[in-house]
Amino acid sequence: MALLEVRNITKTYGSETVLNNISFDLEKFETLSILGSSGSGKTTLLRCLNYLEIPDDGEIILDNEVYFSKDKVSTYDEDTIRQKRLHFGMVFQQFNLFPQYTALENVQLALKLVKKEKDTQDKAIELLKKMGLENRMDHYPHQLSGGQQQRVAIARALALEPDILCFDEPTSALDPELTSEVLKVIKELANSKTTMIIVTHEINFAKEVSDKILFMDNAEQLDFGSVQEVLINPRNQRIEEFLNSNKSE
């Protein structure tokens, strides 16, 4: 059984369908990239996994347990949703670090408040070192570059040891040179047995780092499968056209 099974997720805002019948699954330690043009629903799908949006239909199974189902969601109270969310980590496009806390305190905060751990410092230091930020631990977010901020945000998400770490366009707010330092960290995570879902526009990066690809267009799922099936020898004609048009640019 796969670690994560997403079945027929549908989401509408009023009369507009933003996700139409999306299904995919993910094994432990695999990396899935979600590709597609802007406005295709990629980010909304990721937000559904983190309970930042509630789907209108479908089912999500995590580790053989119901994580989301349309019929049960209305019975979940805030505490239940909070517990469920902890299975997923989230790294945002805009980092969303807490400005009044140092890099170290950003990583420690949820360990203290949510996990009620007393000794959080060693763990936070270790994570920031892993992100190459040993000299930036006492800096406040506004004193850090975008790439450094995003790496703090990754450390903050890793601190809670989620089953699956989600990235929502992690490099879209960064300059090209800062992009590479963040992508490098994500690649290291992929190589060190982290289960990840990455929403991205970086197709070459997705090819390199992913085990599976979900390709979306206009709220629809164009294809889901291995990198080989979806991107290298595309079996879907529209994806092939998309990739060719991107190449010529």
Binding site: D79, R82, R85, F88, G89, F98, V114, A157
Partner: peptide, 26 residues
């Protein structure tokens, strides 16, 4: 910014913790 509330949520914080430990000082 709504991102501050969302960052607290995905870290599993309660609404009260988000208000007290993230939003209040800002």
């Amino acid at each position: 910014p709504v991102g501050q509330f969302e960052a607290g949520k995905v870290l599993g914080m309660t609404s009260f913790q988000i208000m007290k430990d993230i939003v209040l000082l800002q």
